[in-house]
């Protein structure tokens, strides 16, 4: 289905967003709105937002909401839906028109990925401005990977900042800083970069996070280079604050070696603070909605595991925080 949808061009005036959430407290300072961009170069096996992977819109099915009314079958002009049998959709016939999601009365069938404009997004978050002001918050561009739609993201960030709204961007770090210059534009247009640090070792990275198609095998080092470049201030004195965040995934990122390698790297890059984001399995629901294979069966790390990981970073002088509890002034300010 998604393959039939024309891939969005890098249009400056339109982007695909799969969710906008307000009153978020864990992705940057204060109370923030999160704008989730669709599309990600990575396929981390623990991903909690698998609906962010594909750049195009996707159809999700929440079986719990389905009342078996058959509307979807009636409205599908391609005969792609067989209800109530599972699998509910025949991907070979689906043309990705989303008529079924538009007509589904319960919202059991829904579309992830709506085209949005800068104006539309600004109007969506505008009512939250007073709360940003009183809490020291703002907007965080998340995903997926916002740097995949850099012109749009930069334009959005520029507009928001013109209203005095602080903008953060969450990135997996796998982007081409030099290509069109658009990514550099974006990063110069935000106040804070929340930079994921996951798997240090190149081979493990490829296995756990994918990243094929953007120079497979080189992804991990590209990410490290990008982080180092950001830490050095992008060659600009007005660069954003950069803050690393490490998802602590049992058996994947929580190895001593991985953590120690990151600790050494971050110290070298001059970072004073790090957020550890412990794994949770919330993404499982979404995998089911999207008809994806189940993710790996993982348990959330125990408090003492989190503590042990934190210890490794503390031992090199990096302060460690929970999401939402960061002392932002502890990080480096590039430039």
């Amino acid at each position: 289905m998604a393959s039939a949808e024309p891939r969005p061009g890098r249009r400056r005036d339109e982007a695909k967003v799969f969710s906008i959430q307000h009153f978020c407290l864990h992705d940057g300072p204060g109370v923030r709105s999160l704008i989730f961009f669709k599309g990600c170069p990575l396929r981390c096996s623990w991903c909690q937002n698998p609906e962010s992977w594909d750049t195009g819109p996707e159809l999700a099915f929440k079986a719990r909401l389905c009342i078996g009314c058959g509307t979807c079958r009636l409205v599908c002009s391609h005969g792609a839906i067989r209800v109530p049998a599972h699998p509910w959709r025949d991907p070979s016939r689906c043309r990705g028109c989303f008529t079924c999601a538009e007509k589904c009365p319960t919202g059991a069938l829904s579309r992830f990925g709506e085209p949005v404009t800068v104006d539309g997004l600004v109007e969506e978050v505008r009512p939250e401005f007073p709360l940003y002001r009183s809490s020291g918050g703002g907007v965080t561009l998340s995903g997926g990977e916002p740097t995949l739609q850099p012109e749009f993201a930069a334009a959005l960030a520029g507009r928001l900042r013109s209203y005095g709204v602080s903008v953060a961007v969450e990135t997996c770090g796998l982007f081409d800083m030099d290509g069109s210059g658009a990514v550099r534009d974006l990063l110069n247009n935000v106040d804070l970069v929340l930079f994921d640090v996951k798997v240090y070792d190149e081979e493990s990275f490829g296995r756990l996070c994918g990243g094929g198609g953007t120079g497979a095998g080189k992804a991990a080092s590209r990410i490290r280079d990008n982080l180092m470049a950001l830490a050095d201030g992008l060659g600009s004195r007005r660069g954003p604050r950069v803050w690393p965040r490490l998802p602590l995934i049992p058996g994947m990122t929580d190895g001593r070696e991985n953590l120690a390698a990151w600790a050494g790297f971050l110290r070298k890059a001059g970072f004073g603070g790090l957020t550890i984001v412990p794994y949770h399995a919330l993404g499982e629901s979404k995998r089911v909605w999207l008809g994806l294979d189940r993710g790996p069966a993982l348990a959330a790390p125990a408090a003492e595991d989190v503590e042990a990981a934190a210890g490794i970073f503390r031992s090199v002088g990096i302060r460690v925080f929970s999401p939402g509890e960061e002392a932002w002034e502890a990080g480096t300010r590039a430039g």
Binding site: L25, D27, L34, K62, A281, L282, G283, E284, S285, P323
Partner: peptide
């Protein structure tokens, strides 16, 4: 809500 994710409780799978 947790970092980077937020949903209504009722929407989630029972195991979650």
């Amino acid at each position: 809500r947790v970092a980077g994710y937020c949903a209504y409780f009722n929407d989630l799978q029972p195991a979650v």
